[in-house]
Design a binder for these strands. Structure first.
Length: 763
RNA sequence: GAAUCUGUAGCUCAGUUGGUUAGAGCGCAUCAUUGACAUUGAUGAGGUCAGAGGUUCAAGUCCUCUCAGAUUCACCA
């Protein structure tokens, strides 16, 4: 609202709504509820245009509230594991520090404090945008009861045999210091080269096998060369060995059908510890796994001395130089290929073997696929159903462990006395980093000192663990028991969000809160399509697994906001339009309207200041038209101080103009209702705009200027019904106008936010 | 490599199950208006709906192909 028109501010109106209790639904078993769980924003993140699109949810919520349904919009915010830690580490970096300067308890406390400072900011901002959320039911993902539930879910999965540890090849970012799921890897096309190396065959002078590779540096970890058994060029190499150059290790030649005869030379160097395909080959052929890069990104003791302690690109150059010098470089060709990059820091991902925690996903995915196929969960737009099912049918086991601090730790405990081969990293009393195997450190450091200064531990996959917290080992009764330092993938927690925010009890579902029984499954999950797999799919799986029902009946995927050049808005590109700046400049109503006006579902759409300005003019129009109606009423009251204002329409007294506008009103009531029901917000807002501005203002009101007081009932009826229809889109101005009208014309309903949705008028 | 989406007025985009002269906002032109309107109103110009073929009484809308662009998924050296 343009502030110059009224002394009532948007925040006054918001407060009056909130304090009236309008946002807090009352459970009424006789009525069907309507509920939406807010896609939880990151707690440390200020709002951007993407969040402003929650306007769509507010439209649904306000509409259903006006229909008289007990309506819940449940807000919350997420600790956002890796995202937040990444932001925090950037701050540390500016101070010349790093995460390695702190033990994990201290680091956790520091991040906690950082998030607490920012956590209320986006709440304030959501209120600015007029979102009618039930703040009495607000949740934060690290609240103790929520975390307890998440840990209980882990326990249940474990008891059901769906949790396991394995040392597979994972997507590891050595800069972020953690593994990622496949979804978190961004594939980018990179211009590089194919290097052709000659590997000598053992015992055969001048017989070489030439391999082609994009990653020369990994050759130090080769443990085989693979050729296709049908490849005639290599038939003589059965049972022969290769002498790996630079390393002088004898490695076998294996025959593997998956090797493409046509690619390169048809011979592949095999590095099982640093390539996903080679890992599979290594498993099938029982090859040696030699990991040559450590989790800090540097080469380790598994390579010859001169190559140790270096980053991959440094090793690459040395290997190329040394092979060239040895006359083993056959040729170098240009080659473009896809390389995985960290979605967080954009550095190349190092495929690396590491022990991780996994969820067996197939048993969870199956019911979630069925739910989509049978329509228990509906998708809008429907094309996303196919995307969802395709993805779910090809899903792989879910790596839920992250080697970061910020987030709940995986509830598993190891006994260091039973498993002295566990490696620990910690800060000693003097704050110096100590790394090593427990068996070597045992005499020198107490368990307490290790625990207090702990940064991380690495436990081989064959060690046993306990899933109940205890002070003693259940086998040897040692008190050297230490908790896993891996934390959960954020989505493991947020995947259970609808359950946990509504008070589901995973230990005993019958003891869940009344909210859960009433509001679950929720009505709609509205979110951006880019977290369909990350979040929506996981919520469906967890919902069905834990509560035996889907978490929401409809998934509505909304559009993505892009800039005028079609680019995704992001801080690093500097093309962000700040919704709060727009709110200040043009009013919240104008911003909201511009976010839904004329948009198609789930396609990118452009927000520009022009568009917002156009909607500001519309909001002004509403204000001014209302002022005109008020003026007519005031004149009437001056002349007839003792008469009441009537909104009752006497059909026999209507002229053609009256009949026309009322017919149009009826049709806009019915079209707006179906358009919102079918998520056609763009159409709904366009029709309303057209009706109000042209049918009502330009035609009816213009003609009304020449008429007497008899115009008042129709004028008021159309205005009030229009305000109601517009209210979900344009809440502030409509409410403020309505309340003035209420006082002048003696209307019954106290506020628009809880007023009844219009019904067609009988003519 | 697989899948999906997009191509409609100068710009940004709507167009629901195929149905009369294809719509909006911004911009542009002309006129009017400053007594609801930090303006607004009236009128108008501007489109072979990417291209080709097909189905149909009827296609922007359905089918096939071509061209152009975007995105997502994917372990190919």
């Amino acid at each position: 609202m343009d502030k110059s028109y009224s002394s009532v501010t948007e925040s006054d109106i918001y407060q009056s709504w909130e304090s009236s209790g309008a946002f807090t639904p009352k459970i009424d078993k006789k009525k069907k509820p309507f509920s939406i769980i807010l896609p939880l924003p990151n707690a440390n993140d200020p709002m951007h245009m993407g969040h402003a699109l929650f306007t769509i949810e507010d439209i649904l919520i306000r509409y259903h509230r006006m229909l008289g349904e007990p309506t819940l919009w449940l807000p919350g915010s997420d600790h956002a594991g890796i995202e937040t830690q990444f932001v925090f580490e950037k701050m540390l970096q500016k101070e010349g520090k790093s995460r390695f300067d702190y033990d994990r308890q201290t680091l956790y406390q520091m991040i906690w404090g950082f998030v607490e400072k920012n956590r209320t900011l986006n709440q304030f901002q959501m209120k600015k945008l007029g979102f009618s959320m039930d703040w009495t039911r607000y949740h934060y993902s690290l609240e103790t009861p929520i975390v307890d539930n998440v840990l209980a879910t882990f326990k249940k999965l474990y008891d059901d045999g769906l949790i396991y540890r394995d040392e597979k090849i994972v997507n590891y970012c050595t800069f972020c210091g953690t593994a990622f799921s496949n979804l978190e890897v961004v594939h980018k096309s990179v211009d590089s080269h194919l290097w052709y190396f000659k590997y000598p065959v053992v015992g055969q002078k001048d017989r070489y096998v030439t391999v082609a590779t994009t990653r020369p540096e990994t050759m130090l970890g080769d443990t085989a060369v693979a050729v296709n058994p049908k490849d005639k060029r290599y038939l003589d190499l059965k049972n022969q060995k290769i002498l790996l150059p630079l390393v002088n290790r004898e490695i076998p030649i294996i025959f593997e059908e998956t090797v493409d005869i046509k690619f390169g030379t048809g011979a592949v160097k095999v590095t099982p510890s640093h390539s996903p395909e080679d890992y599979d080959m290594g498993k099938i052929h029982g090859l040696e796994f030699i990991r040559i890069f450590d989790y800090d990104g540097r080469s380790n003791q598994n390579v010859p001395l001169k190559y140790r302690g270096l980053f991959p690109n440094q090793v690459r150059q040395m290997v190329i130089d040394d092979l060239t010098a040895a006359g083993l470089m056959e040729k170098i060709k240009d080659y473009t290929h896809e390389v995985g990059h960290c979605y967080r820091c954009s550095r190349p991902i190092e495929p690396i073997t590491a022990p991780q925690w996994y969820v067996k996903i197939a048993p969870l995915a199956k019911p979630a696929i069925d739910a989509a196929k049978t329509g228990k969960v509906k998708f809008f737009p429907v094309r996303f159903k196919k995307t969802y099912i395709d993805w779910m049918e090809n899903i792989r086991d879910w790596n839920i462990s992250r080697q970061i601090v910020w987030g709940p730790r995986i509830p598993a405990w190891y006994c260091l006395d039973c498993h002295p081969q566990i490696k620990v990293n910690f800060l000693d009393k003097n704050k110096k980093i100590v790394s090593g195997f427990y068996k070597d450190l045992k005499g020198k450091y107490s368990v307490e000192e290790i625990k207090n200064g702990l940064q991380s531990l690495v436990a081989p996959v064959d060690v046993s663990f306990m899933v109940e917290e205890s002070i003693q080992c259940s086998k040897c009764h040692s008190s050297a028991v230490i908790q896993e330092t891996d934390t959960f993938d954020t989505w493991f927690l947020s995947g259970q969000w609808p359950l946990n925010t509504l008070g589901f009890n995973p230990k005993d579902p019958s003891k869940s809160s009344p909210d859960f029984g009433y509001f679950y499954p929720t009505s709609v999950m509205d979110t951006l399509w880019d977290i369909l797999f990350f979040w929506v799919a996981r919520m469906i799986m967890f919902g069905l697994y834990l509560a035996k029902d889907v978490p929401f009946k409809t998934v509505h995927l909304h559009s993505r906001v892009v800039d005028a050049r079609g680019q995704k808005m992001s801080k690093s590109k500097g093309n962000v339009i700040d919704p709060l700046v727009m709110t200040e400049k043009y009013g919240t109503d104008a911003l909201r309207m511009s976010l839904v006006y004329g948009i198609a579902p789930a396609s990118d759409f452009v927000v520009s200041e022009d568009k917002i300005r156009a909607q500001r003019n519309f909001v002004n129009k509403i204000w001014n038209a209302s002022r005109f109606v008020l003026m007519i009423i005031e004149r009437f009251v001056e002349k007839n101080p003792k008469l009441n204002i009537s909104t009752t329409i006497d059909i026999s007294k209507l002229n053609d103009d009256d009949k026309n506008i009322l017919t149009n009103l009826n049709s806009i009531i019915s079209s707006t209702t179906t358009n919102i029901d079918k998520y056609r917000f763009g159409q709904a807002s366009e029709n309303l705009y057209q009706f109000f501005w042209h049918d009502f203002c330009d035609i009816y009101i213009e003609k009304a200027k020449d008429r007497g007081e008899d115009v008042i009932p129709v004028l008021l009826t159309v205005l009030i019904n229009s305000l109601k229809l517009l209210h979900p889109f344009i809440p502030f101005v409509t409410e403020s106008v309505y309340q003035i009208l209420r006082d002048k014309a003696g209307l019954e309903e106290p506020q628009l936010v809880t007023a009844s949705w219009p019904k067609e008028i009988k003519l």
